[in-house]
Design a binder for these strands. Sequence first.
DNA 1: CCATCTGTTGACTG
DNA 2: TCAGTCAACAGATG
Length: 280
Amino acid sequence: MPELPEVETVRRGLTKLVEGSTIKSVDVLYPKMVNLPPKDFENALKGKKIDRIDRRGKYLLIRLSDHLTIVSHLRMEGKYDVELDGAPLDKHTHVVFHLTDGRELRYNDTRKFGRMNLVDTGTEMSVAGLKTIGPEPTEQALTLDYMTAIFKKSRKVIKPFLLDQSNIAGLGNIYADEVLWLSKINPKQPVNSLKPAQIKRLRKNIITEIQMAIDGHGTTVHSYSTAYGEAGNFQNHLNVYGKQGEPCPRCGTKIVKIKLAQRGTHYCPKCQPLRGEKHE
DNA sequence: CCATCTGTTGACTG
DNA sequence: TCAGTCAACAGATG
């Protein structure tokens, strides 16, 4: 699933369904999914209560009693699901949390990329990825001063720069393409070549686009069954992602798709021209 | 069958 | 420090 809006949607769904529940036992069906030997992971969680679900960037922080936190990253296709005890297991269920009320919280992940780290609450910043995570894409956390500073000191091209979670937390491949289109910035533009007005516009678009996507319960592409919570509907608001060959909603030019830093990248060649000395 | 795609990120290379 | 490549893994698509 996850970019930030999708993870936030999962967080809200999980909160509704399992906040306050107590874990009776845990089955780890795919050992590589967790950071501890499976038996240790299972034993440590027995009898713990789910106090709250937090989020940082694309990471879920499942807060448990006795100062424990599960740091859960869904990567490409991780999903949580709640079933009644004993319902047939999905082929791709890798961790089952049996609850004391007769339900099961299950973690499903077709590609097995997701990871869960069980840590003491307060030490979650030691988990790789959270160590260096950048500010949340919000009005308060993502200040213009910060944006200006990081953009000034890097010569990287902007698309991969936006995907780097240590710069800004939560943007993934879809929203990176979308905010660049909204801001009329070419994905290959070096970040230190952006004008102050462009940085300002980009910041604004990042903040509002992420918020609008959260309000729309995230984006659902392909025919993934929605993890949880409400079905996303933000896919109806996408302007360039997956729209290669279709007319740009702003100028009618055909959207093109290129490969940049190994990721599919969609943009309008007319609205988002590459500026500066470098041409091609 | 084969090549290539996919909402992620961390490790490795030169 | 950085850009490029690959790897984890499974399934869909052409």
